[in-house]
């Protein structure tokens, strides 16, 4: 980059500094890409989990504080299923991905019938009851599963080195920087989340069950008048929401170990996502999940993860304070 005329210059500092800048840039690019990949994995899992929370709020108008615990239960059940079913990691993982969301969803539907239905879905009392549910699920897991973090073997886990483009001496060139790699499983998580969310969208817009859910969301009384069993719809929605969180837990557990306290951070992040995206809006939730997941991934790599969370939390609180109507589906709740 040096101009020919300056080449004989004996002062080492400016040239040296420029070379330093160039190396920094060279390292920064691949590093950023790595951070974005990690962010994309987080965003995928978050999108799945937050769309469950958003669905429950959208249809039932209640905030489920125990949502993080359903995610944790998904991860813990994935551990349980994979350690009791033989036949190789792939088969065990598929079994976990089917069984864990079903069990967790069933449990949530039961909680809805036993607890939330009796509260008439009063918003404030429901929050208090789901806080209770949060502690019941978390502490019951501590009593049965224990306080250890336990890993799950991913169904496949090839290391994939990623290329980086560099403007070298002979023009553009590909090369593989050391350390810039991901695993096939992480790419699978991103793909799986995309497919699942597309399926959820199709289910809500094209299927009869989705139609019934949307009808209940628009006007519960009118839906009842048309013979829709609203109570059963609510139980199903609560179950599906929890099942989505559990599925997110199953997907993340081969990357992050299963631990009984893992629900807390996940709940905070999903709250942030659904509030930024607008509670109850599925499309907004996805956009916000990508935004928050990517920026959390990037900020956490370059700065402190705690600082990232503090800033995000404050930002969201202020969004709620100053734009409550826009973010709570138009109603001044």
């Amino acid at each position: 980059m040096d101009m020919p005329g300056t080449a004989p210059c004996v002062c080492p500092l400016p040239g040296g500094a420029r070379a330093q800048d160039a190396t920094d840039f060279m390292d920064f690019g691949p590093y950023l890409m790595l951070a974005m990949l990690e962010g994309a994995v987080l965003a995928s899992v978050l999108a799945l989990m937050a769309s469950g929370l958003s669905l429950v709020f959208g249809v039932m108008r209640v905030v489920n504080v125990a949502h993080g615990e359903f995610y944790m239960l998904g991860a813990v059940m994935a551990w349980a299923v994979t350690s009791f079913i033989g036949g190789g990691p792939a088969l065990a993982f598929i079994a976990a991905a089917i069984l864990a969301p079903l069990l967790v969803g069933g449990l949530a539907a039961l909680a809805d019938i036993v607890i939330l239905k009796r509260l008439n879905y009063d918003p404030e009392r429901t929050i208090v009851a789901t806080i209770g549910l949060l502690y019941i699920l978390q502490q019951a897991t501590l009593m049965s599963y224990g306080a250890d973090a336990r890993p799950v073997v991913p169904p496949f886990n090839h290391r994939i080195a990623l290329p980086w483009i560099e403007w070298g001496e002979g023009g553009l060139a590909f090369y593989f920087p050391w350390g810039l790699s991901t695993t096939s499983y992480k790419l699978f998580v991103i793909g799986a989340a995309v497919v699942l969310i597309a399926a959820l969208r199709l289910f809500m817009t094209r299927s009869r069950a989705g139609l019934i859910m949307r009808a209940t969301q628009l006007d519960g009384d009118m839906a009842t008048a048309f013979g829709i069993p609203v109570e059963r719809v609510y139980a199903a929605v609560f179950g599906v929401g929890a099942g989505l969180a559990a599925l997110a837990g199953v997907l993340i557990v081969p990357i992050q170990q299963a631990h009984y306290l893992m629900g807390g951070d996940a709940l905070l992040l999903s709250f942030i996502v659904v509030i930024i995206g607008g509670l109850g809006s599925l499309a907004g939730t996805i956009v916000a999940a990508v935004l928050i997941g990517m920026s959390d991934g990037i900020i956490s790599v370059f700065f402190s993860p705690t600082l990232a969370k503090i800033l995000a939390t404050l930002a969201v609180a202020l969004v709620l304070v100053f734009r409550p109507q826009g973010l709570f589906g138009g109603k001044g709740r």
Partner: peptide
């Protein structure tokens, strides 16, 4: 700040300030 909201929003805003 938080009293500009009410009900469920107030609960979440206070929760978030406290977490921060």
């Amino acid at each position: 700040l938080a009293l500009r909201t009410a009900g469920v929003s107030f609960m979440i805003v206070t929760l978030m300030f406290s977490q921060a």
